[in-house]
Each structure stands twice: as C-alpha cells, then as structure tokens.
C-alpha cells in the first residue's frame, strides 16, 4: 500500500520543517503533499487549520523550490495542495510557478465545491503546465461529477474519508470503498483524512484502498519539536503500509 505524507509548508518554521521532512526522506514512501498556506483553509479540521497562519508568515518561494527539489531527488513525487482562492486571479501564472517549483501535480480541495463552475478551465490550465491534476473526491461527490472529472484527468485519486481533515465520524468503510472503486475502475485511490492509527490503516488496506495520506497525526510532534515521537509515528506508517 502506498503512503503519502502531508505537511503544511513550512510549519512551524522553515528550519524545523526541513529538519522533520529530512527525517522522512530515507523512508520508503511515495508521495509528499505540501499544503500551500492560505487564509481560510475551510475544509481542514482545527489541527491543520491552525498551521496555515504560521506557515503563511514563514512561506517563501525559494524555500519551497529547495524543498520540492529535495523531495524529487529521493524519487518521491511532490504535490501542492492548494485552495483555489490562492490563484483565483491568475491561475496561469500560479500553475507556472508550481511547475517551476518542481511539483508533479496539484490537489485542489475546493475545486469541486466553491469553484465547481470553473472546474474545466482550471483543469485545463493545470494540465497545460504539465502538472497532473489529482481528483479530490469524498463520499458526497455525486456519481456524475466523479465520472466527468475522471475523464478530464489521468492520475491517481485522492479520496477524503471524513468530512474534513483530522476528525473522525463513524463510517462504513466497506460501502464507501465499494462505490468509489466501482466508479474509478483500476485507477489508484489514496485515501486520507482522520487516519491516525494502525488499526484504521489495516482496515483500509483490507478493503482494498491503494494507499493512505496522513497529515494531522504528524503535526503535534513537529510542533513540540519531538523527534522521538515523530520518528515512531512515521515508522509505524511505513511499516503498516509497506511492511
């Protein structure tokens, strides 16, 4: 099973961020998602939400470029997770800077909600810069919308298990998987949101998801500068997904 790690970039500071990211680099995992900080990360839970404020102050394009390069050198793929209001006025310029920074593709969590009417033009801007658009679906995305977006993209799929990041409401994983698999066919499905322990990872693996994405669960140790707790978390993730 694949593993994607999410980090709001650069939280809690450029230096600490790099220190922790570097600890993950030797590990066996596939994707890094870097959250580009924004004022209103509406669809994130409180844990990730609060990282955006500090990260906005610390953000710089040079730092981002260096980071993406480091990631790419290990053979992992790097994706920018971006709320659409960040590029509302200049999608073309923004995607060009993302390509320039070295990203493989884009994850846009609000594309199919607040920016639904612009989905086609945004999708074509993303691909015109040679970036993959990662479809972001959840259990309430209608069938017809999933089919349309699948036809506009070629990459893996990000499936949000929970209504927002870092929270846990009760779910019927089996039926969620059945539906999304049915709609997505052979495409790779990485599932994220609220994944924080080995038990749930095993359940997700067992039903058939191709990978998991983890974010909120890593933030606490980074905040406390606790490398021991961080290492034990990422080792657990690595062994649950690749062991």
């Amino acid at each position: 099973m694949k593993l994607a790690l999410y980090f709001t970039f650069p939280y809690p500071s450029g230096e600490t961020f790099n220190k922790f990211l570097n600890r993950t680099m030797p590990l066996n995992y596939e994707y890094v998602e870097l959250g580009i900080p924004t004022e209103h990360p509406y669809y994130d839970g409180p844990v990730i939400r609060k990282t955006h404020g500090r990260a906005r102050e610390e953000f710089s394009m040079e730092l981002l470029k260096d980071t993406v390069q480091t990631i790419r050198e290990t053979g992992k793929k790097a994706y920018a997770l971006v709320y659409c209001n960040l590029f509302e006025n200049d999608a073309d310029g923004f995607m060009s800077s993302m390509k320039d920074a070295g990203f493989n593709g884009m994850i846009l969590p609000d594309l199919l909600t607040d920016y639904y009417s612009m989905r086609r033009s945004i999708a074509s801007t993303v691909s015109s810069h040679g970036l993959e658009l990662i479809p972001f679906f959840n259990s309430t995305t209608p069938d017809s919308v999933i089919k349309e977006i699948l036809s506009l993209t070629h990459s893996w799929i990000y499936f949000g298990l929970q209504p927002s990041t870092g929270i846990r409401v009760p779910l019927d994983i089996q039926s969620m998987y059945g539906r999304i698999r049915n709609l997505c066919g052979e495409r790779e499905i990485i599932v994220g949101f609220g994944i924080n322990n080995a038990g749930i990872i095993r359940d997700l693996r067992k039903v058939g998801f191709d990978g998991i994405a983890v974010g909120s669960a890593l933030i606490d140790s980074m905040e406390k500068n606790d490398t021991v707790a961080f290492d034990s978390e990422i080792k657990m993730l690595e062994s649950e997904t690749h062991g």
């Binding site: 509406y42 669809y43 839970g45 409180p46 939400r49 609060k50 199919l112 909600t113 607040d114 639904y116 959840n138 309430t140 995305t141 209608p142 069938d143 017809s144 919308v145 209504p163 927002s164 870092g166 929270i167 846990r168 409401v169 009760p170 539906r179």
Partner: peptide, 26 residues
C-alpha cells in the same frame, strides 16, 4: 439523493477556527 445530485454539495464548514464543530457531532 446525494450521489445523484447534478453538482457536489458543499461540505459543512467550521466557523470557529479553534475547534471542529463537525467532530463535535460525535
């Protein structure tokens, strides 16, 4: 009806940055 809607339903949103009102539904 949700999977049959013509457009995605906008998800619920928190308005207090400090806590998750969605999580509170538990």
């Amino acid at each position: 009806i949700i999977p049959d809607l013509p457009e995605p339903l906008s998800p619920p949103r928190d308005h207090d940055p400090e806590r998750s009102s969605i999580d509170l539904l538990n």
